[in-house]
């Protein structure tokens, strides 16, 4: 075994550990933030008594979930039931591989960039479907069916909206897309694409008003109705990490990623990402939930036509730009 292979392995292990650590801490922070933000919207305080300003609240929740009994429902499909939370969580962590934190600060700068990212986040939907299907619960089954329908519908506008950026940037490498935004963020040239991307990513992350797979007032808890303890926590972790990842991608594609004055790149990226996450929470605590058929209508009749229009418009602009330049 040569030394470069060894160091490479070491690097992968180190970065993987760091990513998982970050995911855990980030999810704890996001849950705390969500609860505090929600409380502010709702005329109350939120968690304040456990630790300074309730900062240890989510840690307590996590420890408690770790120590809960793991229930295995009667007549569930054991293999799928156990595999589902892992499959829903792991791919989203993998998405950190291509996330550019700063100039050159990216684990693997692949030339198919975010295509890989979308491929990975889609795998987590298989996990969600398996969870609902395997737990032998009708609410779970209904929730997972809804999740699949939603995922299929919203994947298309999500990719269509990014196509505009790709066409404008002429590359699929995330780091290059970010570097191109030195002068002007892509949101200025692709505002419609940003809106489409934001809506679709809300739906992809199962967030209100598109949270029908786990619609609490309809399906009890949707696909994770039968999951307890740490298995349930994995779904939770996955959900919050997915929000973070999609917000980070939106920041990289449209808001200039690490670009910003004075402060170092990663800080700017995190700032933009958390600002977007805050918007996601704002939306969640403001709107009622859509019905499943309205959700499909919104994807197929509104988002996709506008997505195609955006691609078409970008193509025209690119074509005629040559003549004006």
């Amino acid at each position: 075994m040569n030394s470069s292979l060894l160091s490479e392995t070491f690097k992968i292990v180190l970065l993987g550990t760091l990513a998982i650590l970050f995911v855990a801490v980030n999810a704890l922070f996001l849950v705390w933030m969500e609860r505090r933000v929600a409380a502010r919207f709702q005329l109350r305080r939120g968690p304040i008594h456990v630790g300074w300003q309730g900062s240890l609240q989510t840690l307590a929740d996590a420890l408690k979930l770790l120590s809960k009994e793991l229930v295995f429902p009667h007549e569930a499909n054991k293999f799928l039931y156990l595999l589902a939370p892992l499959l829903a969580f792991a791919p989203i962590v993998c998405a950190f591989v291509i996330l550019p934190l700063g100039p050159g600060a990216v684990i693997r700068d692949l030339n198919v960039g975010f295509l890989l990212l979308f491929a990975l986040t889609n795998i987590s939907f298989i996990g969600i479907f398996m969870a609902g299907w395997a737990s032998n619960n009708k609410y779970g089954a209904l929730g997972s069916m809804r999740a699949v329908a939603q995922n299929i519908s919203y994947e298309i506008p999500l990719l269509l909206s990014t196509m505009g950026v790709v066409m404008a940037a002429q590359t699929m490498k995330l780091s290059e897309i970010v570097s191109l935004q030195e002068k002007a963020w892509f949101i200025t040239v692709q505002p419609l694409a940003f809106l489409l991307f934001f809506c679709s990513s809300l739906a992809e992350a199962n967030r209100a008003p598109f949270d029908i797979p786990e619609a609490e007032s309809e399906l009890v808890a949707g696909f994770h109705t039968e999951y307890s303890g740490m298995r349930f926590a994995l779904f939770f972790l996955g959900e919050y990490t997915a929000i973070f990842v999609s917000s980070a991608v939106a920041a990289a594609l449209f808001l200039g990623g690490w670009q910003g004055p004075l402060l170092p790149g990663p800080f700017w990226l995190l700032l933009k990402t958390y600002a977007l996450v805050f918007t996601v929470m704002w939306v969640r605590w403001t709107f009622p939930r859509l019905r499943s058929d309205q959700l499909m209508n919104f994807a197929w009749k509104v988002l996709i036509p506008f997505g195609i229009l955006n691609v078409f418009g970008t193509a025209l602009w690119l074509y005629f730009e040559k003549f004006f330049a």
Binding site: R44, P47, H49, Q57, D61, K64, A221, E226
Partner: peptide, 23 residues
């Protein structure tokens, strides 16, 4: 659980509809 008394202050506010996730 509502605005004036707010059980969530002490961390009792995460009301779970599924018994599998409740303590």
């Amino acid at each position: 659980g509502a605005a004036r008394f707010d059980m969530d202050r002490f961390g009792f506010g995460v009301v779970r509809p599924s018994p599998r996730q409740a303590d």
